[in-house]
């Protein structure tokens, strides 16, 4: 009876997941094996043409490492920037914690298009930073702040930082404060405590945060499109291009799947490498 009721309760969620996750994925999988055609989204019968095109043409193939590198760099930057923030908030008094929490979450309150556009105003060749530097005669040509990995990673890190900080914070807050004291009583200096106790114990948060940011970064479209200006060619950009502009559904689906599987593999490897026997 109890089990029956539980099954009944997950039915709505299960239905949603089936309709909007499983079914579309199956559709995309089938579509990726469809034959290409001219003048219509896809043709008769099945073929591997989509996959072949991706790996044979460097223009497309190179987008995959580009996407993955972008995802890894963004994750790394978020971790480096987010850890001290999380550490600080975890140690802050209750009164401050709420305010700091709000500040961390604030990027999420503004739409992603507006935020990315904001970065183009700052980073562009005639943007705020470059024109100011030029006015003071510090540079002659504009610094390459945009239309490259630097700009895109910067903007992505800004957008996804909260997704790193929140899991880190929850891991650090659930840590017994006596652990640090115990380590000190055993003779450890503060940096040793961080390296050997705090960081390893917060590993579940690091893992969650990294996976979240990586998955979000790799599947992002708006920020690479606006800040990268089509010069940072990620697979997501090419997928949209193939689906909407070239009207080639099998090719677009194949690329989408290749990206999803590659990202999935990296997440799997990362999870393996950071597995915690103790948890």
């Amino acid at each position: 009876m109890k089990r029956l009721r539980a099954t009944f309760l997950i039915l709505p969620a299960a239905t949603l997941i089936f309709l909007f996750v499983v079914l579309p994925y199956v559709t995309v999988l089938v579509m990726s094996f469809r034959a290409p055609a001219d003048g219509q989204p896809y043709g008769e019968g099945f073929s591997l043409a989509g996959y072949a095109q991706f790996f044979n043409e460097g223009y497309y193939a190179w987008s995959l490492p580009q996407s993955l590198v972008l995802g890894i760099l963004t994750t790394f930057v978020c971790l480096i920037l987010g850890y001290p923030v999380a550490l600080h908030i975890a140690k802050a008094s209750k009164r401050w914690r709420g305010l700091l929490y709000g500040i961390v979450l604030s990027p999420l309150l503004i739409g992603i298009v507006i935020r990315s556009y904001g970065w183009t105003i700052l980073l562009g060749n005639s943007g705020v930073i470059n024109s100011t530097l030029r006015q003071f005669g510090l540079i002659e040509r504009p610094l390459p702040l945009m239309y490259n990995n630097f700009g895109v990673v910067l903007a992505l890190a800004h957008v996804f930082l909260p997704f790193m900080v929140l899991p880190l914070l929850s891991a650090l807050q659930s840590m017994d404060p006596a652990l640090g004291q115990a380590a000190r009583s055993l003779g450890a200096k503060p940096f040793t405590i961080f390296r050997r106790i705090t960081f390893p114990v917060s590993m579940p948060g690091v893992q969650t945060g990294c996976i979240l940011v990586f998955v979000l970064a790799i599947s992002s479209y708006v920020t690479p499109a606006l800040v990268g200006g089509m010069r940072v060619k990620t697979t997501t950009l090419l997928v949209i291009d193939a689906l909407i502009d070239q009207f080639q559904w099998p090719f677009g689906s194949a690329m989408a799947l290749i990206l999803a599987v590659s990202a999935g593999l990296i997440v799997l490897i990362f999870a393996r490498l950071t597995a915690m026997k103790w948890n």
């Binding site: 017994d176 006596a178 652990l179 004291q181 115990a182 380590a183 009583s185 106790i197 390893p200 114990v201 590993m203 915690m276 103790w278 948890n279």
Partner: peptide
């Protein structure tokens, strides 16, 4: 040498 109420053993 100190023993804490929560034991404070390093979980990892």
């Amino acid at each position: 040498g100190m023993v804490f109420q929560s034991y404070a053993l390093f979980p990892h």
